[in-house]
Amino acid sequence: MATVGIESSAHTFGVGVVEDGRVLANVKSMYRISDRGLIPMKVADFHQKHAGAVIRRALKEAGVERVEAVGYTMGPGLGPCLRVGQLSAIVLSRITGAPLYPVNHAAAHVEITRHIYGLRDPLVLYVSGGNSQILGLEDKPQKHYHVYGETFDVGVGNMLDSFARAAKLKPAWGSSVARLAEGGRYIAMPYTVKGMDFTFTGLLTNAMKLLKSGEKRDVAFSLQETAFSMLCEATERALLLTGKREVIASGGVAQSRRLRDMLGVMAKSHGRKFYVAPDEFNSDNGAMIALVAEKMHTAVGMKPKIKGSDYGIKQRYRIEDFMIRWG
């Protein structure tokens, strides 16, 4: 029996359908970021307009008759955008009579990767627009993703986007920076790692300044190499400290081929394996929300005891506050 998941934390309104861990549909409608970036109310309006159609298309593609459970992204994300997904999910749940499950967005990115490759306890580099964290499962006090290290300021995705905008590129999750960086030469830039934590603002400020004098391509190249090397180093330190056997990357920036290459080389040098999910699950999507909602629905003790007031949104929902009640 099928579970539907609705994702709307930022510029994507996504609806996924999952059955027994298999993805039957994963439909998305994406707001095109303008040069001025993301204005939450506008994006929410856009989502509102497309929500019904996206939900219908996903259900049709999946060809399911009955909906067993409904999941939605509770947070973290932009308030107005989250609200649209939440309300759509409530309506769908009322219509179908299926119970509703609030899901943590970051945990969903990680969980779908862990699920696809059947991994029990990987070390995770979670890299998205607003976030950059090194995570791993810990059992105490209850099973959850513990944050071993993270950015002290901005997420790597937003950092690359800010640079792309300053360099007058198309802001598209760093991929335009990557294209510009091809064939660039290295210029030394601020590199700030504190154990397993790191900061990006010094690096960004420096790159913006260099844009005025230096060759654009060299600046993009050096910015990307420096930022990804920092992420890789912090991940490497966490890998050796925790002794975990596998490494995964997930989240929007995990679509970067360069970052993947680096993590792959790093993992291999310590005899560990590196995994990353197909791009459709690293960009925002509803399938991952459906997958986690299905796991919540199946898990012991998670039968819908949740009260109406718990179906809220949490703009700053931290991943360690989301319990993982399954294997």
Binding site: Y186, A188, E225, S229, C232, D261, V265, M266
Partner: peptide, 9 residues
């Protein structure tokens, strides 16, 4: 030496 990062860095 770390093979994942460029030589200069």
């Amino acid at each position: 030496a770390k093979g994942y990062r460029i030589k200069e860095l």
